[in-house]
Amino acid sequence: MMQLLTGPLFVASLLIFVIGLVVRAVLYIKGLDAKLERVAYSYHRERSVPGAAMSIIKWLIPAGTAGWRTQPVAMVLFFLLHFGAVLLPLFLLGHTVILEQCTGISLPALPNNVADILTIASLSALALLALRRILSPVLRQLNSFQDWLILALTFAPFFTGFMAMHSASSYDLWIQLHVISGELFLVLAPFTKLSHIVLFFMSRAQLGIDFAIKRGGDTRGGVFPW
C-alpha cells in the first residue's frame, strides 16, 4: 500500500500539483487584456515592476498594510496558519529527505521542536479560522462548501503528520493517512481556491501593476501606499 502511495501516486499527485498550478498561472497571464482592462501592461516597466513587487511584499509582512492593520484577528490567524503551511512542507525533516532523494535539492531541515510549534500553531489557526467562519456574521453571509473543503484539506495533512510524529503505537496508520491526505491536498490544489498558492501572486502583481501604470503611478511618486 505504502509503496503505491509513495511511489507512482506520489509522483502523479506532485505532477498534478505543479503542472496544474503552472497551467493556472499561465492561463491567468495569457488571459490578461491590456485593452479591455485598460492597463498598459507592457509599458512603464520602471514603475510596474516595483509596483507589482511591493503589492506582493507588503501583504506578505504582518501588519505591512492598512488592510492587515485594520483586521488584526484575520491577520494573526492567516499568518499563524501560513508560517507553518509554507515552512513545514518544504523544511520538515523527512520531507527534506524525500526531496533530496527525488530531486537532489538539499534544503535545511527545521529542528523538531520548531516543527512541532509550527504545526500546533497552524492547527490552532485552522481551528480558529473554522470558528471564525461559524461565528462571524460577515463570513456567515459568504461561506460556501469550498471554504470548508479547503480548511479540511489543509487540516488533515498537518493533523495526521503531527500524530504520526507523536503516536508510537499507531504510527503506521497515521503515516498512511498523512500521505493520503497530503496527496489529496496536492491533487485538488489546482482545482480549488487552494490555487491561491500561485494566483495570490498573480492577482496582487496585477493590481500593483494597475496602480503603478495607470492609477497614480506617474503622479503619486513612489508605490501605492497599501
Binding site: 509503496q3 509513495t6 523527512g94 529527505v97 524525500i98 510524529m165 508510537a168 503506521d172 503515516i175
Partner: peptide, 22 residues
C-alpha cells in the same frame, strides 16, 4: 536511504522513505 528503500520497493516489503519512524 536510497539503497535500503530501493530494495524494499523491489521486494514489495519493508518501509518506504515516507515511513521514517518504522
Amino acid at each position: 536511504h536510497m539503497e535500503c528503500t530501493r530494495c524494499h520497493a523491489q521486494a514489495g516489503a519493508g518501509p518506504s522513505l515516507a515511513e521514517c519512524r518504522t
